[in-house]
Design a protein around this nucleic acid. Structure first.
Lengths: 217, 217
DNA sequence: GCAAATTTTGACCGATTGGACAAACGTTAG
DNA sequence: CTAACGTTTGTCCAATCGGTCAAAATTTGC
């Protein structure tokens, strides 16, 4: 087959319709299983069952368990960093930051599995996505740190550490996905319903808007 | 032995010197292994090797893998909640909160393994410590929420949601233990040294003190 | 010093795991 | 219809897992 007229350009083979569909099915199932049990805590059998297929069948689409995980992580990082990418120079700084916080909190509410998958990976020392952290993520943060520094220099928001500002927004918002069971258990049945995200949004908005407001005098 | 003069009061047998020492050794090793790999990701062999003994020898002191984990978690929760227990009515509210934040951040710096062990357990849905969360932890938080509410009623700090204030303090401080590799990678070699905890402390102090200050006007 | 109790070890077991493989099955283009 | 290709499955394997057990080595109480 080497040198054949219809030969594909090296590695990334074109996929058939079935392959595309089944791979999506597997990734969805794997997200469910991995986020609940971690990488080592999840078995191929669990993922295969969640995807409604046999283990050898699953291994026909992903040759190794790790391949599923890395594919998942690569996709994840893109959507996960989207809110930060939108943080832009135009518009009022406090409004921009408030929008960013709200978007991050909405992601924690609507995509908790993605958040937990990511948290699991970082907790284990990020053995499989360290390059992405040191590359894509780091440079994006550096870019946005400059934006925030600009706001501070212009006297639009209080002078604080932009890096730790970003960290604290990550921490406070993702907390509601990663530590969800604890949050719900502590709040109890009455306060722990769906309204908890509204309460959290209100609190965080207050904390950050007043905390970053420029102090007069 | 039953009915002997020196009989122990039922279940909790007194331990020999060797048992006490070896159990401590095992728990220390297990903390290292569990916090790095999670419960399912850790093997008894790993723990045994880290403790410098053979697997059957380890199983002589803890009959099941889960026993090690639960023992570790029970001890952990006590020391972990100590800073919150110290949060007291006496003294200036903002000073009390600042001390609490500082203590929590110091724990993240000095006991990152404990933090990660806890995070791992919560991430997996807290299957082994849910009772402690719903019991001891919940009632402690409820108690401290009342303290904070008192401060708010007295006009000492801004009126916000005390539950989410506590959550956000947990999130922002533990972040530096649980997501340590990410924090260090993003900050880079120059800013990611030991000084990062000082920077974090300064930022969090600013954020919370100004964020909770009573607004005039 | 010695007997009883405690501690340590090597060998072993059944269950589960990630993955390989060839055969069987289905689909599709000509 | 049929040959070629893509898909699915049952079976199997070696490695690893948590845990058992009896025997050996050691410590301890007297």
């Amino acid at each position: 087959m080497v040198g054949g007229v219809t030969m594909e350009t090296a590695a990334p083979r074109r996929r058939t319709r079935i392959q595309q569909e089944k791979r999506e099915l597997i990734l969805e199932a794997a997200l469910e299983v991995f986020s609940a049990n971690g990488f080592r805590g999840s078995t191929i059998d669990q993922i295969a069952e969640a995807a409604g297929m046999s283990k050898p069948n699953l291994l026909y689409y992903f040759r190794r368990k790790e391949d599923i995980h890395t594919t998942l992580m690569q996709r994840l990082l893109d959507t996960w960093l989207a809110p930060l990418r939108e943080l832009d120079d135009i518009g009022d700084p406090l409004t921009e930051l408030r929008s960013y916080i709200r978007r991050k909190l909405e992601m924690a509410r609507d995509y908790p599995r993605e958040s937990r998958l990511f948290a699991n990976e970082i907790l284990q020392g990020a053995p499989r996505i360290m390059p992405l952290i040191e590359g894509e993520l780091k440079s994006l943060v550096e870019e946005k740190v400059e934006v925030i520094k600009g706001w501070m220099r212009a006297g639009k928001i209080a002078e604080t550490d932009p890096w730790h500002l970003i960290f604290s927004i990550w921490a406070t918002t993702q907390h509601y996905a990663d530590f969800d069971v604890q949050v719900r258990a502590v709040l109890g049945t009455d306060r722990g319903g769906e309204g908890r995200f509204e309460d959290a949004a209100r609190f965080l908005e207050h904390l950050y808007l007043q905390g970053l407001r420029v102090r007069q005098g």
